[in-house]
């Protein structure tokens, strides 16, 4: 049973990640390749707060979201100045710089050795969460909250403005909307939720190292998002379900681990190509990348 719970917890984390990526990529057509950087920043900052101070979870989560969100301003600043492919490459650059820092700034991050023994989360400063059950409940609740809030965002006037930015940025500007403000808000919320996923992950597995937050991981999140679909809520959720459950299905088939890891990547890649050809909005998505 613990095995099933583990999968559900990871699924919840990936639902948050794909939903957070959807806000910028799916709604505002801002193709970023650095979601894993925010995921990692959240994990490391959260670890720092958990290990240095004995703070209640809600406070840690709020701090993590705030700090991770603050890092998003670097990306939103780039989005103002850089268009299309230049923006994509700049976000890749941000991803690689964050990874390089996590890997090389050994005094703080312990670099490749990683940080072991991350304590569990304290709810309201009282009892510490341990074991798979506690994280199951916590991640389910947070996932539900994130799904609710992001669904609301997509449907709200805020989502309408992001959608309009995707369609025709200049016209939206000529209608009196501050594009920079809206993009920055989208990046902030996106990064904050990715950071939240990061702290849940770090505290749940109690060990982090930089290899969980690479460009490949960003591309992985991106693949999940595009397979599931962009522009609404159910698309990203389905994408997360697909990429988290597929390896488990392959395990049932009984493939050796060495082959299975590569095979599932091949399946993701093929799925991505086929989806882009037959259904560019994704399996359950609403909008198509411009």
């Amino acid at each position: 049973m613990e095995y099933v719970f583990h999968i559900i917890i990871m699924l919840n984390i990936y639902i948050m990640l794909t939903l957070s990526a959807n806000l910028t990529i799916g709604m505002a057509n801002l193709l970023t390749m650095c979601q894993a950087a925010f995921y990692g920043i959240g994990a490391y900052i959260g670890t720092f707060f958990l290990m240095q101070f004995n703070l209640p979870f809600l406070l840690v989560a709020a701090l993590v979201m705030l700090f991770t969100g603050a890092f998003s301003f670097l990306v939103s600043f780039a989005s103002v100045r850089l268009k299309d492919d230049y923006f994509v490459i700049a976000t890749m650059g941000f991803q690689l710089i964050v990874y390089t820092i996590l890997y090389n700034w050994t005094d703080v991050t312990r670099g490749p050795y990683g940080i072991p023994g991350i304590p569990g989360i304290r709810l309201f400063g009282m009892f510490e969460l341990t074991g798979v059950y506690a994280y199951l409940v916590l991640s389910l609740v947070l996932m539900a909250v994130v799904v609710f809030l992001f669904h609301h965002l997509v449907e709200s006037p805020f989502g309408r403005v992001l959608n309009a930015i995707r369609a025709d940025e200049i016209t939206v500007k000529s209608m009196g909307r501050n594009i920079v403000k809206f993009k920055s808000l989208a990046f902030f919320l996106s990064a904050a939720v990715a950071g939240l996923a990061g702290i849940i992950y770090a505290s749940y597995v109690s060990y982090i190292d930089p290899t969980s937050f690479t460009l490949d991981e960003s591309i992985f999140i991106l693949s999940a998002l595009f397979i599931g679909g962009i522009g609404n809520t159910k698309g990203p959720v389905l994408g997360a379900v697909f990429v988290v459950l597929l390896p488990e299905l392959l395990r049932f088939v009984g493939l050796p681990d060495s082959v299975a890891a590569n095979l599932r990547q091949i399946i993701y890649g093929l799925a991505l190509i086929l989806v882009m050809y037959y259904r560019p909005q994704g399996l359950l998505g609403k909008t198509i990348m411009k």
Partner: peptide, 19 residues
């Protein structure tokens, strides 16, 4: 939605403000 966006009234357009 096209028409509504052209309005100068931006009520509810900040995230979560409509919530």
């Amino acid at each position: 939605e096209n028409m509504k966006l052209a309005s100068d009234d931006t009520t509810g357009e900040m995230p979560f403000s409509s919530l």
